[in-house]
Every structure is written in structure tokens, then in C-alpha cells.
Amino acid sequence: MSDHALFKRVAIGTIAVWLLLFAFAPNLMVVIASFLTRGESEFLVWTPTTDAYARMLDPLYLHVFWNSFYLSAMTTLLCLVIGYPFAYLIARANPAVRPYLLLLVIIPFWTSSLVRTYAMIVILNTNGLLNTLLQSLGLIDEPLELLYTDGAVIAGLVYTLLPFMVLPLYAAIEKLDWRLVEAARDLGARKVRTFASVIIPLTSPGIVAGCMLVFLPGLGMFYVADFLGGSKTTLIGNLIQRQFLSARDWPFGSAASVTLTIVMGLMIGLYLLAAKRANAKVEV
């Protein structure tokens, strides 16, 4: 074999073997496991069944799914409302300071979300910064119970996930063809109209990408709910974690993961559709 073919084979072979073994095979196993039965002594028994999926329709679990979707959706909405003007201002800032403004978003993006969630506890604690501040301003007499509420979980999720919303939004806004915006203005569109009919549709791929990067992790970050939420706040992540670590019900945990993955797949489909439509509109 010539050196030519050898390098090519090694390069392709390494990544192919790794991805098939550690990306393809494990995902296939989750799907298979979700159709198996839980055993007495073993985790899984080869008795095919759709029980795990049927059990997810139990009101108890439906409630967990609903609650987790609700918290994640609220988080996504808040991140979008806070993040869009923020990304817009960074993208429109003086090019000399822009890289530094961006760097200040990238640093929290890479900072351990565990550390950032912990920082949120320090702020929201009964004797934490926020309560102390509100009390010293005389706005409240007694410290508020900020921790261990759904609000605290949303605050924690927004805090850890905001950079994941801002970065794709920034990328989309920065790429925006401003001539189209000027054209709209020249044709007499008011500011609000220009924003709603030109800027928003053109940046929709960034909006959808940002929403996905916030919404999906928001369903799984079990430690945020562990640290900041009350005993009733359970995310899909906590549910899956419990099935694998304490309840030992792997088929059910797998079924919940498959469901989560299907939701993700649908959202990616939506994203590709939005990107396609945005491109089509530009070409028209």
C-alpha cells in the first residue's frame, strides 16, 4: 500500500471507528434499552415491550414533562427578550470595541455552569446579597424565600444559558445585510415595521439556533433544579438521572431520553426549515 492511501485510510478510519463506537452505538443502545424490561438483578432483560413509553403517560410523569417544558420555555423566552437587544447592540457597536464586548460573553459561555449555578445560590440565599440589598434599602422587612422556588430555577437557567442565546444571535445580526434594512426605510417603513418584517425574519436562523441551545440543555440540567429548586421542582434531567442512579429503571430512563431526543430532532427540523426560508427570502 502506498503512503498515499495509508494516510488517507488512517485519517478516515480513526474518526470513523471512534464515532461509530462512541456516538452511533450508544445512541442505538438507548433506543433498544427503551424497549426492554427491567430485571430483578440485572438492569435490563431481553423481553421486548413498550411498557416504558406507556408509563410516561402516567399523570405523575406527564406533570414532570410539562413542568420541565414550562421552565425551559420561560427560560428561553427570557433569554431571547434579554439577549436579542443585547446581541443587537454588540453587533452594532464600534468595531474597535466589539471584539472585547464579545469576549465578555464568551468567557461566561466557557465557565463551568456548575460554578455559575453555585454563584446564583450565593446571590439568592436567605442571607444572600439580594436579600441583604433589599433589606438595607428598606424595601423588605423580612428576607424573602428566593431559593428553592421555580423562580430561582428559571433565574439560574437564564443566568447559565444566556451566553448560548447571545452568541448565535450575534452571529446572525452581524451577518445581516444592512442594505435591505435601508431599503425598507427608504420605502417608508417605520422602525417597528422594519424590525418586525425585515430584521426579525432575516435573523430568524440565529433566533431559532439560540432558542434550541437554551431550551434543550434547560430540560436536562438537573443540578440547577437540585441546587435552586424546591423538592417539587423536577426537570426531565432529574427524572432520567433518578431512573439510572436510584430507581434503577433503565428502560424508563431510556424511553425518557429517546423522547427528549425526538423533541430535539423536531426542533432541528424546524431550525433547518427556518434557515431555508430565510435564505429563500433573501434570494427573492
Partner: peptide, 22 residues
Amino acid sequence: LIFVLIMSPEIVMGISLLLLFV
């Protein structure tokens, strides 16, 4: 597969690797 790895919720990747190793 690379796209799947990037997009997979971490918790799904965690349990899928656990299943593989077991």
C-alpha cells in the same frame, strides 16, 4: 454523527455512554 454529538443533550449522551460501557 458529529452534528448529533454536538446537538445531543448532555444527559442523553451520559446515559448512552453508560449503557455502552456496561
